[in-house]
Design a protein around this nucleic acid. Structure first.
Lengths: 189, 189
DNA sequence: TGCAACTACCTAAAGCTTTTAGGCAAGCCC
DNA sequence: GGGCTTGCCTAAAAGCTTTAGGTAGTTGCA
């Protein structure tokens, strides 16, 4: 009986692919076992439980997103950086809807603190260095940008905008324009 | 054997309460049957299937949210209306996290079109009448507002902001201020 | 090279959820 | 009060999760 060569890493990676194909909700230990043509119980040597798998996929997604964002930000500043950053989120969600859904998983505080989520916040802050904001306005702005990107992408992904004209492409660039304008003229309290 | 007096309406309503108590993910036909002290199969006379229950909760949540928003908007305009609208979302999500999560459920196009989701879009447009935007900028702005409110609330609910100072209360009002400023000075293409 | 230890994958089993099919009896309608 | 509708039941099949304990492939060391 040949061994399948399972490792936690391979399982999480395959789980991420599965998520993109059938949706994050449908990712199950059973489905994953089927994919490796292996009995379900075998996976429990590599995964603590089902939640462990989902968390693993979420962490992978956060990492991939942060890597892409870091790459996109290199050598850019101001509005250029803002647009590049925004596009990374949107493109990733379109290419990997299951992984993106995974990245929204609620992590317990320790896991979250050790995740690539921290890098995301740092990069957002780096973008804001191109605008003239002082604390605590910078923090407010970090949260605004996070909200807009996450909110827009998840509404678009969920089909929230699909019924109406004009197309979402145009809206996306206009929203980035608007955010840039807002950050350059951030209102005093 | 006394009858429990089940109806689809009562089941959906109880499902919504269950969602708020244990989380929308944990809402299951079995748990609902337990709550009514009734056998699981009995619920299938009133619900087509498990998805049907979840959809019902989502529609209920959308309706409740729209009702609250309509009430809050009555007699207000401009920034006042914007802030009231925003607070409805945030407060509802805090009071009814399970229902709010349900409202994010992806509905099939027909169900979505018949849902209270349409009223939400109409109300957002009504708020924008207080600002000087023409089509298609109004549509872009509708989408921006939807993104910010949804994004902010779901990040806050998911604990995304919980680690850092300053507190989210302050951020929320500053974001509403910022949106108001942005809508009054919406950048030309 | 051969044996011991390790570990990857297995079988078995219990408990939970979903869903369908068919049955009995409660409550309304005359 | 007798019949009809229908609300809730039992039974059963199928899928997912998780644990316990067994077997065989692989590695490492003498």
């Amino acid at each position: 009986m040949a061994r399948a060569g399972l490792t936690t890493e391979r399982l999480v990676r395959a789980g991420a692919e599965l998520a993109d194909e059938v949706g994050f909700e449908q990712v199950t230990v059973s489905a994953l076992a089927r994919r490796f043509d292996v009995k379900v119980a075998s996976l429990y040597s590599h995964l603590k439980n089902s939640q462990d798998l989902k968390t693993g996929i979420a962490l992978l997604a956060l990492e991939e997103l942060a890597d892409r964002a870091a790459h996109a930000l290199a050598g850019r500043a101001g509005k250029d950086a803002l647009a590049a950053f925004a596009n990374v989120y949107r493109d990733y969600a379109r290419e990997h809807p299951g992984r993106y859904a995974a990245a929204q998983l609620r992590l317990d505080p320790q896991t979250a603190a050790a995740s690539a989520g921290v890098r995301h916040a740092q990069m957002t802050r780096a973008i804001l260095r191109g605008y003239d904001l002082t604390e605590p306005d910078q923090t407010h702005a970090v949260r605004l940008l996070g909200s807009v990107f996450h909110g827009y992408v998840s509404l678009e992904l969920g089909g929230g905008f699909s019924h109406s004209a004009p197309d979402t492409e145009e809206t996306w660039t206009r929203i980035v324009d608007a955010l840039d304008a807002l950050l350059r003229n951030w209102p005093a309290p």
